[in-house]
Write a protein that binds this DNA or RNA. Structure first.
Lengths: 211, 211
DNA sequence: TCATTCAGTAAACAGCTGTTCGCCGAGTCT
DNA sequence: AGACTCGGCGAACAGCTGTTTACTGAATGA
């Protein structure tokens, strides 16, 4: 096999991952455009020049982090959409899943929220592309539902985008709440559920909208 | 008068404004956390040390920019809310006003979108505070409308937050579209109007929501 | 008119940055 | 066993960074 790991590639992959981990950790308190190459290699305990064996740029490391952060999310979305038919339950579950995801991937979520409109163009583009893919997925999941009768394909994609943006906003809001303040956190999730209810209500009355 | 400008204070204010302008321009392609003090003073044509006569920090300059960017928005919001009663017209007008505002204050809007979840804590806090104030204003504007019957004060604030977040999202989306692509821009504003319609529809059917 | 205030200066500080270079030595392939 | 690949190293490069210092000179106020 040509792509059997081998001790060689395994070591390389390990260093690469260490660079990603250190970068993500350092991005807790700053944006990607101010993250230094030496800063990252120093945190890993490796020579500055070693960085170039893995990434040509800081931007490239950022793009790799986007993949890490949003790659594992597709399964989550599928689960959220597939579940029971009751709209109220579905909303509760979606918000709960989002909250749990933030807890497990706090640093990644912060990175996405921070760099979505951040100063590094390739990273912004990578995030936009990934979120666009999510929107397509959500739209595809919405289409077969009975509540989608009377919706054009284009309009359904707009609705899906509304859901996706709302999910990102909710994740960012949960992330910003201090961990030791469960009351504030409950307030955030309550608002998130309410927002989803408003949107879903608008969706279900779409057919009867007037002038 | 002790606070009459005087040639002295006028000159100082002028330099301060030049620092803000240069900073904002440089932030077109990077985030605040990577903006250098010398970079800004160089662009203005002033000695590095002069910076400290106006701001203790880059963070302080950032906070001042938040005020600049969002201070002039209150009047716009008031206008948008006050207008005609017809829901459809109100939506069209709101989106149009938002688009126009982006054109006039492109750099400021980019700054807000970029730093809302950016790496500089005091700036994030300033933006959150200002947006919170907007939310209160919108909630207060919504309350007296007939469509707000059956809404609790707390829920109205959540709805207002939804509108505000949606406005910021729309502004950011318009800002990202290239200026020489009116078709893409029309697509964005169409989606923005559609989103507002969904939300408004949900709002007006709030009373009859079920389990 | 004379003393005071203070925005802006020039220079120096130590310390950091990204990038290139040739070299080493362990893992790999034949 | 021998040739080769290639991830990581250490050193050097020019150039940049924020911050402090003592200063100048014009606007100010008595």
């Amino acid at each position: 096999m040509s792509h059997t790991p081998g001790a060689r590639q395994a070591q390389k992959e390990q260093t690469r991952q260490a660079l990603l981990d250190a970068g993500l950790q350092l991005l807790d308190r700053q944006s990607l455009s101010s993250l230094g190459l030496r800063e990252v290699t120093r945190a890993v305990g490796v020579a500055p020049a070693a960085f170039y064996r893995h990434f040509p740029d800081m931007a490239a490391l950022g793009v790799a982090l986007v993949g890490e952060a949003l790659g594992s999310l597709h399964a989550v979305i599928r689960d959220a959409l597939a579940g029971g038919q009751d709209a109220e339950d579905l909303i509760d579950r979606t918000v709960a899943v989002t909250a749990a995801y933030v807890d497990e991937h706090r640093a990644h979520i912060r990175f996405i929220a921070r760099e979505r409109y951040g100063g590094v163009q390739p990273v912004r583009a990578a995030i936009a592309a990934e979120l666009g893919r999510f929107t397509d997925e959500v739209a595809a999941g919405l289409a077969p539902q009975p509540a989608s009768a009377g919706w054009s394909v284009a309009d359904l994609r707009v609705l899906a985008g509304l859901y996706v943006d709302h999910m990102v906003l909710t994740a960012a809001a949960i992330m910003e709440v201090p961990e030791d303040d469960p009351a504030a956190r409950e307030e955030i999730t309550r608002a998130a559920r309410l927002r989803m209810q408003i949107i879903s209500l608008g969706r279900s009355h779409w057919a009867e909208r007037g002038a």
